[in-house]
Simulated scan of single mutants.
Amino acid sequence: MHIEHLALWTYELEAMRQFYETYFGGTANDKYTNPRKQFESYFLTFAKGPRLELMQMPGIAPNPNTPTSQAGGWVHVAFSVGSKEAVDALTERLRHDGYTIVGEPRTTGDGYYESVVLDPDGNRIEITE
């Protein structure tokens, strides 16, 4: 058994697709559109692991999570980039490109070397070695 895909509501479908393609190597399929429901989505495929489905539709309630306050449910997605140097480099690239870094590169108590960035919708993304 394995996780096939994860789904994420977004308010900025194209910006989110571009973010995950540009910084995490995702490859999007052709956009799916259901005009009746005003639903649009992309599936992004990565080199390893599950796919990510980005979905947009009017009427979806705002996410209650903020950079300093987290509600129940899924908290973050972690991408492994292979080394401490790669964590540092991607973190600096994201910072330079204007994204919010909410966790500077560090070794956590459970042994991960990671940083944390917010995607365009404010979701937490861990970048791990």
Rank of each mutant, 00 (worst) to 15 (best):
G59W: 04
I60V: 14
A61E: 08
P62D: 13
P62T: 10
N63S: 13
P64C: 14
P64Q: 06
T68I: 08
T68Q: 10
Q70D: 13
A71S: 11
A71T: 12
G72D: 14
G72F: 13
G73F: 12
W74F: 14
V75L: 14
H76E: 00
A78P: 04
A78F: 05
A78Y: 02
F79Y: 01
S80G: 13
S80H: 07
V81A: 01
G82K: 03
S83H: 06
K84S: 07
E85P: 11
A86M: 07
V87Q: 05
V87Y: 06
D88Q: 04
A89Q: 09
A89D: 03
A89H: 07
L90S: 00
L90G: 01
T91M: 08
T91I: 08
T91A: 08
E92A: 11
E92P: 02
R93W: 04
L94D: 07
R95D: 02
D97V: 10
D97G: 14
G98K: 06
Y99K: 01
I101A: 01
I101F: 01
V102L: 09
E104Y: 06
P105K: 01
P105S: 09
R106C: 02
T107M: 05
T107Y: 01
T107G: 03
T108Q: 03
T108D: 01
D110I: 15
G111V: 00
G111A: 01
Y112N: 03
Y112Q: 08
Y113Q: 04
E114I: 13
V116A: 06
V116H: 06
V117L: 03
V117W: 02
V117Y: 03
L118P: 11
L118S: 11
D119C: 14
D119S: 10
D119N: 05
P120I: 15
D121G: 10
